[in-house]
Design a protein around this nucleic acid. Sequence first.
DNA 1: TTACTAGGCAAATCTGCCTAGTAAATCTCGATTG
Length: 480
Amino acid sequence: MELEELLHKHFGYSSFRPGQREVIEAILQEKDVMALLPTGMGKSLCYQLPAYILDKPVLIVSPLLSLMQDQVEELKRFGEKRVVALNSFLSLTEKRYVLHYLEQYRFIFTSPEMLLQQQVQDKLAQVKLGLIVVDEAHCISQWGYDFRPDYLRIGEWLSRHNRPPLLALSATATSKVMQDIRETLSLKEPFEFMYNVDRPNIHLGRIVLEDKADKASWLMRHVKETAGPGILYVSSRKRAQQYSEAFLQAGIRTAAYHAGYGAEDRQFIQQQFIDGELDWIVATNAFGMGINKQDIRQVIHESMPANIANYMQEIGRAGRDGESALAILLYSDGDEELAKFVVTGDLPSPQHVDRYEELISQQVLPAQMLKNGELGETAFRVLDYWMQQETKEQVKARLNHLALEKYHAVDEMLKIIQTKDCIREHLVGYFGQKLQKKPENCCENCGIHYDEIKKERLTAEKKIEMISWERRLQQLLMGK
DNA sequence: TTACTAGGCAAATCTGCCTAGTAAATCTCGATTG
């Protein structure tokens, strides 16, 4: 049967989206694949279809519990029952059950942390997997070194046994991220597919303001004059709270979103935003992964993103429907200092390294440091990982190098902000690509007609109102 | 590095200024605690 026929049979689609066919063919030829596809372009189909063709279980390593849940539900909507999320949501009994019948599932979603548990590995060794997928593989690079070291351990696990082909999926594709993925996962001469990173329908604004207060008044004005849906990214939970309250007082349907909220609240806010019940989300970088909302019209950064990869991911959430969208980065002098502080603030210090070694030599568990409050949980996890890998001096050098890399990444971002040339060209160039064509309203330096965009927004708002009869009808039927 | 907050103090009975202390993002798992 042709691939198209299989696609139609299993998912009801008549044709592939760009990249899907190439990726699937490579997998079927038992090649390792690194596929860099924008979110919302059907990344998951790249493993879903092969799962049916290969007729063997597929293991998907996913960074977020919520992402796993979403994907499990999506597959269930397609009528697939043999799908499971193996994570800490399961009770001990459930986990035991799932592990016992593991080979009977077609799709097994799990976290890196769970994957590294001995009992899980033992069981997986007995299952003949058809494909291993590392979803959102940029997390290896973004989180592995200084946040979730288990991302780096995935590679060790993979190299230990005879594995099936591996598919690394991501939407972030800087050369450094790609290199980290290749190395950590030991991809064997991978087939690589990379989409065009440019998103011509997103206008790239950059506005330099005096200070924080200036930003606040600019934002209030802007948000009142233009329509959402939009995401405002801020640098702290507290500020997310403050802005969302201010917007609410101005009569704008807004919610704050950050990791300080529980899973249920976050799910609820996210759903409200997706359903069009909120105009703005004011969020920390916790918001975004796995969000598939087509009509986000604006993404504004109130403070500097830590690096270009994050920036691209965050603005890339706008305009998935192909309609015009606006990304605005607000900057005031010295913003980079705070960004640098925040991204390196959690790294263990050389003193922590010495202390760790001291405790080891005294035959005291290093976790004592954590109990004494000598350093935070993240810092300890990172320190503990590296101290098991390398000598004291190597770890010190590594941590120093990590901090320098992070500073450098902030500086690269700053260059984008400060450039007097085309911002789009600069951004695309950072990903090793060449800009094909400059769109209208390209970027701040090429010229953006903000007034026209504002008008467009207002018309868009009316359109939304017209559609809402559907919603009203639904409410009537539901008796709300 | 920055910027907000609490607390102390002067001078006046509420307010303002200064200083020291503190906090600033991302996740999962599992052990411990109230």
